[in-house]
Design a protein around this nucleic acid. Sequence first.
DNA 1: CACCAACGCTTGCGTTTTGCAAGTATGGCA
DNA 2: TGCCATACTTGCAAAACGCAAGCGTTGGTG
Lengths: 117, 117
Amino acid sequence: MNNTQHKRSCCPVACTLDILGDKWTLLIVRDMLLGRCYYKDFCQSPEKIATNILADRLGKLVEHGIAEKWIPDNVSGREAYRLTATGQSLKTVLESVAQWGLNNIKGTEARLKAKSK
Amino acid sequence: MNNTQHKRSCCPVACTLDILGDKWTLLIVRDMLLGRCYYKDFCQSPEKIATNILADRLGKLVEHGIAEKWIPDNVSGREAYRLTATGQSLKTVLESVAQWGLNNIKGTEARLKAKSK
DNA sequence: CACCAACGCTTGCGTTTTGCAAGTATGGCA
DNA sequence: TGCCATACTTGCAAAACGCAAGCGTTGGTG
């Protein structure tokens, strides 16, 4: 991952938060881990992300090498997004976040399942 | 943890991000895991958090039951902050975030160590 | 006991980001 | 060729952020 932008420190936590530290990015990654890949799919998630935010975050995920555009050739010709190997490796982060939420926030329900391949 | 505020969905990832999803909160938790406890300590971290943001985030961490104020009686009478049990359990999240950063962002260096008790 | 510096915030203000609604361009299908 | 869904972009008001300065309290020193 190339990091041309400002880095607050060399701490891996700080650098990761520079990329993922907001309320929306990890939710898009979550959706991609669940197998969703179309813009429309992300819009339809229960959190109801605004379309300008979604477009911005998708662009940044691609820019950081976490996701990439691709055209699923088996179905319609519409372009879609999917995680790169780097993005896939965020699964452990998502799982620890989800687990913490389940343990410590009442009213949460498990939904995250790895996409079966 | 009581959640009186707006919840975007019942997804544990979304709910966790409602609390921790910004560029600063987890850095404060990181510092507390490293044993830092004074306001001044957090200010002096290399990321240089602004004092108004710090005061706001400390307040929210306390409000959410992740941190608490306490007065270390062995040293000076100045009040300090420390993680609750709920906050301590964020260690696994921090570790996975740090590991992802180390693996995927060049120029990061390991610094997070558990506070030895 | 008075003074003073360090500490722990709060305030003000300009800039950036967010959230919402509306608009636009493109693709696929009838 | 026309229509509708999709995939964005744009505009604008509101909220959050970043920076600098200020302010009350604490703790140590003479």
